[in-house]
Design a protein around this nucleic acid. Sequence first.
DNA 1: CCATTAAGATACT
DNA 2: AGTATCTTAATGG
Length: 210
Amino acid sequence: MTQELLEIFEVQFEKPLIEEIIEVGKIIEVSAGDTIMEIGNYVRAMPLLLEGAVKVLREDEEGDELLLYYLEQGETCSMSMACCMGATKSEIRAIAETDAKILMVPVHKMQEWMAKYKGWRNYIFESYHSRLNELLHTVDTIAFKNLDQRLMEYLKKKCQVTNDSNIRSTHQEIAYDLHTSRVVISRLLKKLEKMKILKLHRSHIHLLDV
DNA sequence: CCATTAAGATACT
DNA sequence: AGTATCTTAATGG
């Protein structure tokens, strides 16, 4: 674990900070599809993603979901940072996109380190910043782009985070993430297949031009 | 085999 | 773009 941590965070965290992280952090391993954080749950620890990818979703009253963004290696969830300000419930749901290794840091440590380490402060602020930007990007996509563009972006992003040109999801799952219906996704995918952008198979999609 | 489920088709709003 | 419904095709017991 020391090795992994060094590789990812060496450049931004000071040595004593990394030592402290190793001391108090707990590694959890989850497999693809596992729910890491559920809406309404209290956040007691802050997750640092060491390996794999995590998708972050929002849900409405009817239980319909919408994909907000993906977390990748070295990133963290800004929702959990609100814990600094007190005990807040999670507004989002986080699901492991791939098998993932996550380092959990107790919330009180997080506050302590904010005062103590410059590297940590920067990390938190940068993280906030990039999460916000990703969120803005998703909002733009929803507001200004039509569904086929959204779908293309979704597929490309998915390939990127899973590091695989085959997307192992059903049309229905994609429809849930983009908050639309299965038939519509099927129609659009068919169109994209005709345009030789991808190849359709049962339960997975092969992206051709990556 | 059959049950389940993904995905294609068609027609309607 | 989305819903409802039916049909067809894979997949896993």
